[in-house]
Write a protein that binds this DNA or RNA. Structure first.
Length: 1108
RNA sequence: AGUCCCGUAGCUCAGGUGGUUAGAGCGCUACACUGAUAAUGUAGAGGUCCCCAGUUCAAGUCUGGGCGGGACUACCA
């Protein structure tokens, strides 16, 4: 006797997991899996930030990555998986500041930048242990021994090189953007800082509707502008009015020209504003009244109207004459899509320097800007009336604030009022962002920043995007595609400390600059600078002509102290900003390999670039997915990835976002410990498409995923039990030599499954792959093949049929273990090893071969019919309350066509056994006992009859039996519709099904009808009783502790019916219960026998003893 | 505010190119099986396919407009 199949008492996934983890560690399975030779499948791991704990959503993204990579490994590819850490950025800085109880102002004062950076470096890797733990626990294979780390000098050097490439191509420039800016703190703020709680507060400001005077004599849709025509525009920031250079209108908004008076000066004026806003500025009762000086509310009259698009192009007089923009054609009305009629006048005052929409729309229309406010938040000297005044009252130092101080907003309003340029002045409460450090309101302010000219790459980016396979597609065309369509230049500058410094040095006048692309280059420049006398030592000095990466630090403040020399001999200092951390992570395809300083061939040859596949959450669309895309396009004119899966969020079971605050966050460690990583992964990938949001419900995880594993486990246990009885050993999958019809069906289904699952994996559709496997295991394998084949496994004879059943089941389970391996790495490995006796992991095995030669659609169709037929018969038995143990004589099935007939014939034995019926009769010739029913095939007839379809359908339903039979035999028939027309129908235009079978119990499902003969002859009744008896005897055997193989002597006592049943079925009973002798007699002869109840108010006395 | 995703049974989800009985699993109810037994199977109940309009002979499916949930980006007179 050979090796036995392992029998496990129960299924405990976490335990399986622990054992398999152990094997992987001992056998170095992951390392071995990298020895595949079919070629490289390139995968990029997005770097998580290790300064926070991993959450359940990380399991999601990583399950996807892992499953795809494992699948490709089984396909024979080498899949390198280099882990990475994102180490820079504001969250790290904030965390350190919080822990050390510092503010930004302390940096460089109470704490040196060196110490600060050291603290960041330490903080950022704090949770690497937890991440390692999660990685192991969830079975994610990624190489964490040799990760890329964004603060590593080699990594930073590659990033510098990339920046230099952009610089050389003219794609890096210094320019303005409008950014949130805190004059009190003297620094720009990131959107992140603006989104901190409490940043937006309600404040009351003086607002004003200003009158912009149109130049007379311009044409609007044929009307001519008059001597005192104005546009009305509302502002909550009157201090921006001196810097106004344009007015924006909504191109599709309807505007009206109103004749009225200025409420303050009573001068007659005509004003333009949006029709929808009229009611906010004019009293309904004063419309068309005669104007009079003493009116409280001015009279008004509509005298013209125009679309915004018609107003565009009009020129107006500047409100103030402090300054005019040097460039561009200012003081025009321009169209802006962002203009709404939700508030104000439907016309928007544009000060390009103080609003990002303003800036954008002005740039689009070639309008210059004015910045009449300085970085302290004060008016510049040009603004003669207010020179040096703070534009916001909150900026005014308390000691400078005299009694009776009026804000500049108020004074501007008063000034305009006097000049007939203010239409309405009022206080208005609204929410306005504040600086979280100074508590003062922020301004939107143009700041110097370095940009990547992504707009220059736009069309190429769009083109390249078309070749990327997005899962789901809509994210690529929608969210990502739209983002690319509306691309603006990428602002790289961040005024921070912990990040990659911009490698750009400039002379003080900005006339000369250099962008450094390597440490070596920087070192050489420093040497030159030392010769010129600007530097005394070189912190990046080369050793033997080489960079010693272990000794250098490219962070601030080291690089800040470096002064280079320009070609003309001037000192050049570093631009003080750091670069956006997104640039760090987008650089990883190159920087992870220290390209081009090392591993040049790896990337140039296409081996390590671009990625065949990446996956992250959908929140990375404008993050990592975008930065990878831009940098790859800029550097290599290539995509960075060929396929990308962007998964949705993991929400709680009620669809709410998980958060620590709400306490609904699921701890991934606990989830894995409780359910096992396999169940968790299976649930996450099969419950919903990964790109839909997942409502994480631990209850359905348990019910759903565990069900699959336990079905599989039970199926394996069944195989193990009987194989061990027969002394069969684990082995590699082996096809049966003479498969039965049933085996061939199983193998055909397996072949179909293999085809479909492989296609799903190839399409990166893990959900579909998992669902197919799950449905197959439950429905086809366990519920049909195993259940109906049980007898073949336990029968005694050691014959071909038994062996075929064993091989078929074994083969099928092996395939399932292989095909499920990418998604459920632990259990599949246990199953695979148990089945095959292999000491090598399933993950080193090759993807199973296709089984196309077994595909047999006819057989699969036949079996489907069998299943439906059984279901129908059981449903009749159920409604008629006839137990399955009671045999019935026959079932009748009217067959409609040759295919159905042949198929049913093929599976009739299976049906008979399953539903306990003696014979199955197929009738192809319709007889009196069968009522046919015709139904129109809408798909075929719809296009032909169009409107008359309803009528035709009705006529078809009313066809007589004779008509239908005629149609059936001749293949055509005529039909008369209500308007007298006659139409000809062909056999295939209709669906014919049989309906009632008079005198029989019938059930119908689609084209299948079964009729069951319920008559019970004495023989059938006796056999029913015999079956009951067998059942009771088996129970007794078990109760008396007999082994399944023990032989018995048996006696049964009971009524005449019982005695008759025993005599008539003597052989059957003996075979079933392994009785060597069977005697029967009346009840009064029963000695030390057990009484049992039988169906039909019968009872019997059973005596059995084991033979020796 | 813009862009994108989602809305089908109590729950979780399927439902190419429009076609007439809208499906599955879980749960529930009832039952069967008892040599897979802490396993297995069957049946039944359960639906305003989010709402409204349109296109069409025909709409869960296509179009438009809403509503609700979620995400990302932005934050404005």
């Amino acid at each position: 006797m050979g090796v036995r199949f392992k029998e496990h008492s129960g299924l405990h996934l976490p335990k399986v997991q622990a054992e398999i983890q152990e094997s992987w560690a001992q056998e170095q399975t992951f390392q071995k899996s990298l020895n595949k030779t079919r070629g490289d499948f390139t995968f990029f791991e997005g770097p998580p930030s290790a300064n926070g704990m991993p959450g359940i959503h990380h399991v999601m993204a990583r399950a996807i990555k892992d499953a795809v990579c494992r699948y490709k490994t089984m396909q024979g590819f080498r899949v390198l998986r280099k882990a990475g850490w994102d180490t820079h950025g504001l969250p790290v800085e904030l965390q350190v500041e919080k822990e050390l109880n510092l503010t930004k102002e302390d940096i460089g004062k109470t704490i040196s930048i060196e110490d600060y950076n050291a603290a960041c470096r330490k903080a950022v890797m704090r949770f690497t242990g937890e991440w390692q733990k999660l990685t192991d626990a969830m079975g994610y294979w990624v190489d964490m021994q040799d990760p890329y780390i964004t603060y590593d000098p080699k990594y930073m050097e590659s990033v510098w090189w990339i920046l230099q490439q952009f610089y050389k191509k003219g794609l890096l420039y210094k320019g303005y953007t409008i950014q949130p800016y805190s004059p009190a703190a003297g620094t720009g703020l990131s959107s992140h800082e603006l989104n901190q709680p409490g940043a937006y507060r309600n404040v009351k400001d003086t607002t004003l509707v200003a009158q912009f005077k149109l130049m007379p004599g311009q044409s609007i849709d044929g009307m001519e502008t008059g001597e005192s025509d104005f546009c009305l525009a509302w502002t909550t920031t009157p201090w921006t009015l001196p810097s106004n250079t344009a007015l924006a209108v909504g191109p599709n908004i309807q505007y009206v020209l109103v004749e009225t008076q200025n409420p303050y000066t009573r001068e007659a004026i005509r004003v333009w504003l949006a029709e929808e806003r009229l009611a906010n500025y004019f009293a309904a009762e004063m419309e068309n009244q005669e104007p009079a000086v003493d009116q409280k509310k001015p009279a008004w009259k509509r005298i013209g109207q125009a679309k915004g698009s018609a107003l565009a192009g009009l020129r107006y007089e500047p409100l103030f004459n402090y300054a005019r923009p040097e460039q561009g054609d200012a003081y025009r009305v321009i169209p802006g899509d962002f203009v709404t009629t939700a508030d104000g006048t439907g016309m928007v005052h544009i000060a390009p320097s103080f609003g990002s929409d303003d800036f954008k729309v002005a740039a689009q229309h070639g309008i210059g800007s004015l910045t009449l406010v300085d970085e302290q938040g004060r008016f510049t000297p040009e603004v003669t009336d207010f020179a040096g005044e703070y534009v916001k009252e909150s900026y005014v130092p308390t000691d400078l604030k005299k009694d009776g101080y009026e804000s500049v907003d108020v004074r501007i309003a008063v000034l305009l009022k006097q000049r007939n340029r203010a239409f309405k002045i009022e206080k208005y409460e609204h929410s306005y962002p504040h600086c979280w450090r100074t508590d003062k309101p922020i301004l939107y302010f143009p700041l110097d920043s370095w940009f990547v000219r992504t707009t220059a790459l736009k069309s190429r980016l769009l083109d390249l995007n078309k070749s990327i396979r997005w899962k789901p597609e809509s994210t690529g065309t929608g969210r990502f595609g739209n983002w690319l369509e509306n691309l603006i230049d990428w602002n790289l500058s961040r005024s921070r400390f912990w990040g990659i410094p911009l490698p750009i040095w400039r002379s003080d006048d900005g006339s000369e600059e250099i962008c450094i692309g390597s440490v070596e280059e920087l070192s050489q420049e420093i040497e030159r600078s030392m010769q010129a006398g600007w530097m005394t030592e070189n912190p990046y000095a080369l050793h033997n002509g080489k960079v010693d990466y272990s000794k250098i630090d490219l962070h601030r403040p080291v690089v800040d102290q470096i002064v280079l020399v320009s070609p003309s001999g001037k000192p050049m200092r570093r631009e003080s900003d750091l670069i956006d951390v997104w640039f760090d992570s987008g650089s990883m395809p190159f920087a992870q390999w220290h390209y081009p300083f090392e591993n040049k061939e790896k990337i140039d040859s296409g081996q390590a670039f671009p990625a065949d596949f990446i996956a992250e959450g959908v929140d990375q669309t404008r993050g990592w997915f975008f930065t990878l895309h831009v940098i790859a396009a800029g550097i290599m004119d290539s995509v960075a990835y060929k396929t990308v899966i962007s998964n949705g969020l993991v929400q709680d079971k009620n669809g709410m976002k998980m958060s620590k605050r709400l306490g609904n966050a699921v701890d991934p460690f606990q989830a894995i410990e409780q359910h096992g990583a396999d169940a968790l992964r299976w649930y996450m990938l099969t419950n919903a498409s990964p790109w839909d949001d997942l409502k994480f419900n631990p209850a359905s995880l348990d019910e759903g995923a565990r069900r699959f594993f336990s079905t599989l486990h039970n199926t394996y246990s069944f195989l193990a039990l009987y194989s061990n009885v027969d002394g069969l050993s684990p082995r590699l999958p082996h096809l049966p030599e003479q498969p039965s019809e049933f085996d061939r069906w199983m193998l055909s289904r397996l072949g179909s499954l293999h085809r479909d699952v492989t296609a799903a994996y190839e399409d990166f559709d893990l959900t579909q792959a998992g669902r197919l496997l799950q449905a197959f295991t439950d429905t086809d394998l366990s519920n049909w093949y195993v259940r109906l084949s049980r007898r073949r496994f336990w029968k005694e004879a050691d014959d071909q049929d038994k062996q075929s059943a064993f091989y078929t089941l074994h083969y099928t389970l092996c395939y399932v273990s292989l095909m499920m391996a990418p998604v459920a790495p632990f259990y599949s490995d246990r199953l695979y090893r148990d089945l095959t006796g292999s000491s090598s992991s399933v993950h080193l095995a090759n993807w199973p071969q296709e089984l196309s030669r077994f595909l047999n659609p006819d057989l699969e169709y036949a079996m489907e019919l069998a299943q439906t037929t059984c279901s129908l018969i059981l449903s009749i038995r159920k409604s008629e309350k006839i137990r399955v143990r009671q045999p019935l004589q026959r079932v009748l099935i009217p067959v409609l066509d040759q295919r159905q007939s042949a198929a049913l014939d093929r599976v009739s034995d299976i049906i008979k056994a399953e539903v306990n019926v003696k014979s199955l009769e197929l009738h192809s010739q319709p007889g009196d006992w069968m009522v046919l029913k015709a139904k129109a095939d809408f798909k075929k007839l719809g296009p032909r009859f169009g409107k008359d379809m309803k009528e035709v359908a009705l006529a078809v339903e009313n066809l007589s039996q004779a008509d239908i039979q005629k149609l059936n035999s001749s293949g055509r028939c005529n039909l008369t519709v209500s308007d007298g027309r006659t139409i000809e129908l062909l056999r295939e235009d209709l669906e014919i099904r049989s309906q009632d079978v008079p005198g029989w119990q019938v059930a119908t499902n689609g084209p299948l009808t079964v009729a069951l003969d319920l008559q019970l002859s004495p023989e059938l009744l006796a056999e029913g009783t015999a079956r009951d008896l067998v059942n009771r005897i088996q129970n007794l055997r078990k109760d008396s502790g007999l082994d399944v193989g023990d032989r018995i002597r048996l006696a049964i006592y009971g009524s005449e019916h019982v005695q008759h049943a025993v005599q008539a079925n003597n052989h059957y009973i003996c075979t079933e219960v392994l009785a060597l002798t069977l005697t029967t007699g009346p009840e009064n002869e029963a000695v030390s026998a057990t009484e049992v109840e039988l169906e039909g108010d019968l009872r019997a006395f059973i005596y059995l003893e084991k033979t020796v």
